[in-house]
Write a protein that binds this DNA or RNA. Structure first.
Lengths: 189, 189
DNA sequence: GCTCCATAGTCAACTTGTTGAATAGGTGAA
DNA sequence: TTCACCTATTCAACAAGTTGACTATGGAGC
């Protein structure tokens, strides 16, 4: 019952099919709300049944037809009501951190590799977010957009995504140097 | 089946009861792995059945008895195997971000209040993490601890918690100024 | 011609997570 | 002394998330 708010928020960008939403969640909304395609398809059905969204079948040549969803007035009302309630605390689940926490009792080399992998991944995310940010600005300066833009929400969240991934990269690189130094020290014992 | 790894990681600090673990998850491990007490109690039962942990009943005067859990050799093996596998990507669910994303279509004042609340909360977390960091150092310098300390995992993760909450505070304060400027602009229209 | 990838979904089984209440004694403050 | 809060755990019902397979078509590259 909480995923639906994220879906309604995503639909503010315009109508989208389940498949589109899966891509949107993968690329941007997923930074603060994870959802698999299956979760989305199921939730979309329920939301339609509850009258929060409406579907239009778009027939495509050369491609399967798709059902494009739009928020109804009721959907907009529900989203508005959601923004007026106190949000729940953030729920995170990060296996990499569990591995780092246990690095001393675990396989230090494998953990090192996992951290390096995450640094790569975060760098890639960072680059995509930066492109997204520029698209959001659409030629204007940040000042201008924030002062007079119609929709600043997506800009505010992409900015947070950027600072989060920057911190991930910085932290990850620091961890790599720490682990490398310890590995070198163990070898020279 | 993933919570158990976080529990085993937490038990590296020493034996703990379900209640203790609930507090540990609330205070430190919860920064990267959320779990409610109910989840913990249920998982502890399963882990005991699977031979990953063992319980000793500690009788207490003036307090209910408690079952204190310790990782078995098998539990340690399982944790080690876990650190050697590729971690899953981070799963996040943050309602505040969904609210910020929808701020233009929602209740901007309520969202502002929620962001301010989160800044307060993150500042408090930050102070607690800083204390935790100093406890982890135990009088040594960071250099010394990282080079020669026996267990650096918890230090590495608390450092990440600190940088994460610092970013949260910085970002939140920036969002507040942006929202305030826009509110002022709307009033003077 | 074959295989892989992208589009656009659906279904079912299973595992996790969430919520609320129940139990029960002890501690501290007004 | 009453009330709220802390310790310590259990139970049950329900909601949400995960995994893997299955259907279909089109386009690109080898």
């Amino acid at each position: 019952m909480a995923l639906r708010n994220a879906v309604l928020a995503a639909l503010l960008e315009g109508p989208a099919s389940g498949y589109d939403l899966a891509k949107i969640f993968d690329a941007s909304v997923g930074n603060f709300w994870m959802a698999t395609p299956q979760q989305l398809y199921r939730e979309l059905e329920r939301m339609e049944a509850d009258g929060l969204i409406e579907a239009t079948v778009v027939e495509q040549s050369r491609r399967p037809n798709k059902r494009v969803f739009t928020a109804t007035a009721e959907g907009e009302r529900v989203l508005r009501a959601f923004t007026a309630r106190a949000p729940r605390p953030t729920a995170i689940r990060d296996e990499l951190m569990v591995q780092v926490q246990s690095v001393d009792a675990g396989d230090a080399e494998a953990v090192r590799a996992a951290v390096a992998e995450r640094v790569e991944w975060s760098s890639a995310k960072l680059a995509r977010y930066e492109r997204l940010r520029l698209r959001e600005l659409d030629g204007r300066t940040e000042e201008e957009h924030l002062a007079r833009g119609e929709r600043v929400g997506p800009y505010l969240t992409v900015r947070r995504g950027i600072s989060l991934e920057q911190e991930n990269v910085r932290w990850g690189e620091w961890v790599l140097t720490v682990l490398d130094r310890r590995a070198a020290a163990r070898r020279s014992d």
